[in-house]
């Protein structure tokens, strides 16, 4: 079962600055993600990763800066418009619309690709039915691609944490994004689940051609799948480079070690690149 291939988008973040009540959360953040690559965004807690994700998906508006998806400026667009521009997002906690089934959650992912209006949908006109049938087929294909098709009939509110996260990724994928944001896809998962997630992410990038930007704390996962890595610290970019160079960069080590001794509650980075 092969899903439709997409042309991965190029992401250019330039000079993004966000301030909350006078405090710089992001300062002059710039980096680019190449089409079809896996690009990781790492950094200690409070480095501004989540804020940056919210800027990219149109929830926050930065004071200055530009975010281009291919040649389209998305700063100033509303979240739904950003989604229509080809950005898909999976959330940190695998947040489901709990009263809906998994299939309905995934069908919501197809929302932007379907058309049926109030009248045709309410009257159950053939066009609306056909569209719904097509969407179901696409949803099943996506679910099979991510190996969650056995969950389709379940009520999404009852899913385990790991399953919810996988369904969340599938739902984002159903929007046929050209750029996919994954917010800590491995958080709270067992080792085996993490391995599965790792191969899923790789397959999305390699087989579908989608550009992936992920935030992740697990260095094993990050080093294993990323083509490029951007390290954020205190809202500024330390370095954007290949995993090997990042691993050996003095500033990165300093940032992590400095933080882990200065602050508590930060996950210990494992820099060896192996699980």
């Amino acid at each position: 079962m092969i899903l439709k291939q997409t042309v991965g988008a190029r992401l250019d973040v330039t000079g993004v600055t966000v301030r909350f009540s006078g405090v710089h959360v992001l300062e002059d953040v710039s980096f680019s993600a190449e089409p079809g690559t896996v690009h990781a965004l790492i950094g200690p807690n409070g480095a501004g990763k989540s804020t940056l994700f919210n800027v990219l998906s149109g929830i926050y508006r930065p004071m200055v800066g530009s975010v281009m998806i291919d040649d389209r400026e998305i700063i100033g667009l509303k979240p739904f418009q950003v989604a229509r521009a080809g950005l898909g997002r999976a959330f940190q906690n695998g947040s489901m619309f709990g009263s809906l089934t998994v299939e309905e959650n995934l069908l919501l992912g197809r929302h932007r690709l379907t058309r049926a209006g109030v009248i045709s949908s309410g009257l159950g006109l053939p066009s609306a039915r056909a569209e719904q049938r097509d969407a179901r087929v696409k949803v099943r294909e996506t679910a099979e691609f991510l190996e969650i098709d056995h969950l389709l009939a379940r009520t999404s509110g009852d899913l385990s944490y790991g399953d919810a996260k996988r369904v969340d990724v599938a739902r984002a994928l159903c929007t046929e994004p050209r750029l996919l944001l994954l917010d800590e896809p491995g958080a709270g998962m067992h080792t085996r689940e993490k391995l599965a997630m790792r191969s899923t992410i790789s397959r999305i990038a390699r087989e579908l051609g989608t550009t992936i930007l992920l935030v992740e704390h697990d260095m094993g996962l990050v080093m294993g799948i990323s083509d490029r890595i951007t390290v954020l610290d205190f809202g500024t970019v330390l370095i954007t480079s290949s995993p090997d160079e990042v691993r050996n960069d003095a500033r990165v080590i300093e940032a992590y070690l400095g933080h882990s001794t200065a602050r508590k509650g930060i996950p210990k980075p494992r820099m060896n690149g192996k699980q």
């Binding site: 979240p79 229509r84 959330f91 619309f97 919501l108 929302h111 932007r112």
Partner: peptide, 10 residues
């Protein structure tokens, strides 16, 4: 159920 997530799906 979740306005922000709905918007993120378009």
């Amino acid at each position: 159920d979740a306005e922000v997530h709905a918007a993120a799906l378009g």
